[in-house]
Design a protein around this nucleic acid. Structure first.
Lengths: 229, 229
DNA sequence: CAGGTCGGGTGAACACTGTTCACACAGAGT
DNA sequence: ACTCTGTGTGAACAGTGTTCACCCGACCTG
């Protein structure tokens, strides 16, 4: 019945459509197959099972978010580090708001039933995304715009973790220089998560944009020293 | 078979045990019934369906978190506002870490299949929790410890939302005085959400306590002016 | 051209899920 | 003794993920 041969891309695309329409629970093997004009067992030729489908989907979405940030960066003046970090952050937030179900799948409460394969494609994609932001902070450091911290003031555990992270991502930074990166990542993820999950609805109704954008500006001000411009 | 008559509390307790063991998907009507020594249809005498069970569970967990914060407050000097806010925040974080599945259910990615009943018990419980923190910020304001902001600098939309929120929670505060409360709520939820979801694992491994606690201290410093002590 | 191999697809089946239905059984009230 | 009500049951329905034996058509080989 299938006119075109099945592809992994087609599987992911249909799964994603279902995710958008009805959340993770709506990703139903039989329905994916039906929309592809095929019966359920056929999919098991391409995918080990439903979890495999989710892994593929999470990876694709993570990469799409990364790409959205890269697009935003491409439109920036290369020498304006603050502008670049702002653009990437806002692009990430915009992508999250426009793709709430996908964001929830990637950065929301982990699906307890689903366990990401150790060292699998999802963690790779996550590291690509982290690396993108990491490189922005390297730029900021080089430009002397980063509010760094002395390694000495860090607790030993935190210092070790930060050093290991820098090594893993190949960032030429001291722990005290990595810290603003992690703080930025942490707070950005928090701001976007809470907004996307709608936990501010009781205060701001459906549109918390103004407040969220203020919070992002506040975060940038905490991370970067004012520019010469 | 049931020796004791079924109670709503027993239903909630069993559901919660299943949640802890295997996540939201593990809350299975038949299994709840089985553990209560009864068959599934019997539960429908007490509950309209699975969603009803979730509503009850979410409400119970929200109230438990509120109670945990209240307990922490009871052990504080009544005149030390900063200490009280810190204690409540740390108590919330501690509860979240010790009850990750429950926290995920209440403050995580909303289950798309489940829709909280409008104006139902879950939103009431949420408002009770919000009110608790709101009252702490009223204390801080009275003690002159709150970093407030002029109403004039707020964008009209934000100002209106903050005013409406103050009115709804019966907080005698101007919008510029409510703002730190909402900022605190927002950032606290972000910090705890990201930590509980494990999205910092790639940096800090299983124990991100030191970093998270630093973030909370930083948040408090942003919200409050230093005390006279 | 005959024959075998193999990727890709099918229908049936299994063990689950939430939910509904007709039914049964105990105790209280009249 | 009769009904009524609260409580629980077994069977059933329409779904779910997954596995199994089977099958068919295209391709390569002798």
């Amino acid at each position: 019945m299938a006119t075109t041969p099945l592809t992994l891309d087609a599987l992911v695309a249909t799964s994603r459509a279902l995710l958008v329409e009805g959340g993770p629970d709506a990703i139903v093997v039989r329905e994916v197959a039906r929309r592809l004009g095929v019966t359920a067992p056929a999919l098991y030729r391409y995918v080990r099972g439903r979890d495999d489908l989710l892994t593929l989907l999470i990876t694709a979405c993570t990469d799409e978010a990364t790409a959205a940030c890269l697009d935003a960066l491409a439109a920036c003046r290369p020498d304006d580090v603050e502008g670049r970090i702002r653009a990437a952050t806002l692009a990430f937030r915009a992508w999250a708001l426009q793709h709430r179900p996908e964001f929830g799948l990637v950065y929301g409460t982990p699906l307890m039933h689903y366990a990401a394969p150790e060292g699998g494609p999802t963690v790779d994609a996550g590291q690509r995304f982290g690396g993108l932001f990491g490189s922005l902070f390297v730029e900021a450091l080089a430009a002397g715009r980063l509010r760094t911290v002395d390694d000495g003031v860090l607790s030993p555990g935190v210092r070790a973790s930060l050093a290991a992270t820098a090594a893993r991502l190949d960032l030429p930074m001291r722990p005290g220089e990595v810290r603003p990166f992690i703080v930025g990542w942490h707070r950005m993820l928090g701001i976007v998560s809470v907004e996307v999950a709608g936990h501010l609805r009781w205060v701001f109704g459906e549109d918390a944009s103004a407040f969220a954008e203020e919070q992002i500006e506040e975060l940038l001000a905490d991370l970067l020293v004012p520019g010469a411009t």
